[in-house]
Amino acid sequence: MGPIMDTMGGFGPLAFNAIKAIVLLVVGWIVAGAISGMVRRRVQANPRLDDTLGNFVASILKWVILIIVLIAVLGLFGIEATSLVAILGAATLAIGLALQGTLSDLAAGFMLILFRPYKLGQYVDIGGTAGTVADLNLFFTELTTPDNVQIIVPNGQAWGAVITNYSHHATRRCDLMFGIDYDDDADKAMKIITDLAEADSRVHSDPAPWVRVTNLGDSSVDLTARLWCDAGDYWDIKFELTKTVKEAFDEKGISIPYPHSVEIQKTG
């Protein structure tokens, strides 16, 4: 019994420290999440602060708190902070090689928040991947597609890719193209498009709507309309005006041709 009790006595402090470590990790995780969420909400409630910046700072705070908790947990097992620093210093090269992608994402995250090529809520295309920016943190950018699909883009890839920001400017130009038959009156068709554009309150009067003949196709005369609008109205105007012009063409006798074959018979 003596050796057994000695063994249990040896495991007692270790087990107790393990329990304390688990409790400390759980509490630290909860506190880190609570503080991070509080900072995020405070920034969102202040109109003078950028939500993207607040989200990024909240992410940094969460990881800093978790690192402090980890150091405290290691201290329970007799590993001093100075010893930990020495160990990490000795393993810097190995860690750098193993986590070079993660460190690249971390550095790119700081560059993204510094230069702000996009912000939360903006619709962007990052290297061919398009969506609304839902989150930007230390390591990745989260996009949400129009059909509500989540896309995670590592910050390293985002910073190194071509970024197209469709929401950066307050206004956008909406280009529409319509094809009419060669026998139709081009001026009449252009006036119909112009009148409908000017009647839409969402279309800006400055610059004024621009409608011109831009191409003589194989089976149609192509008309292009260039309209300026608020960025948020772009898709509604594009879809609704296309339908409205088609209905007006039908009413006014303007034909919209489609590819077809014509049979010509010759008598000998």
Rank of each mutant, 00 (worst) to 15 (best):
F110R: 11
L25C: 03
L103M: 13
T267F: 15
I193S: 08
V203R: 03
F115S: 08
T267H: 15
G179R: 14
V153Q: 07
H169T: 14
A21N: 01
N17P: 03
A15Q: 04
N137M: 03
F239K: 06
D181V: 05
L24K: 02
G33E: 00
K119Y: 06
P47T: 08
P259M: 10
L216T: 12
R212S: 08
Q100R: 12
G160I: 04
A15K: 03
G101I: 07
F139M: 14
P154S: 00
Y258E: 14
V133C: 03
R41A: 01
I163N: 09
L120W: 11
A197I: 02
H168S: 09
F11N: 14
E263C: 01
T129D: 12
Y234K: 02
K20T: 10
D250Q: 08
V39S: 07
K238S: 07
T164F: 05
I65E: 02
R226K: 12
K191N: 14
T194L: 05
A91M: 09
F56G: 01
E247T: 09
T194N: 04
R40E: 07
G54W: 12
N17I: 04
E247Y: 15
F11Y: 15
I35M: 00
Q157W: 13
D185H: 05
V64E: 01
A34R: 00
G10C: 06
L223T: 00
D230L: 03
A231M: 07
P257K: 03
V124G: 05
T194M: 02
G28K: 02
D175P: 12
S261D: 13
N148C: 06
A34C: 04
I113T: 10
F178I: 05
L106A: 11
I151G: 02
D6L: 15
S219I: 12
L76F: 00
T82N: 08
Q157L: 13
A225Y: 06
T194G: 01
Q265C: 12
L24R: 00
L97D: 13
D187K: 02
Q265W: 11
L241A: 06
I152V: 06
R172E: 15
A197N: 03
L223H: 00
D195M: 05
Y234N: 00
K188P: 03
G2C: 12
T244Q: 14
M1D: 10
R212K: 14
I67R: 06
G127P: 09
E251F: 13
P3S: 05
Y166D: 04
G75C: 00
L196W: 05
D175A: 13
I163K: 06
I87K: 00
T102V: 07
E240L: 06
L97H: 10
K119M: 07
I192F: 06
W210F: 15
T52I: 01
A231D: 09
Q122H: 09
V124H: 07
H169K: 10
A18D: 04
D187F: 03
R226M: 09
K188G: 00
N215Q: 09
S104Y: 14
V213G: 13
G268H: 08
G217V: 10
G179H: 15
G268K: 07
T82K: 03
M8K: 13
K188M: 12
S167L: 05
D183M: 06
L24M: 04
A130V: 07
A90G: 11
V153P: 06
L76Y: 02
K188R: 13
D135K: 11
G128I: 14
V153T: 07
S104A: 08
S36H: 04
K238T: 10
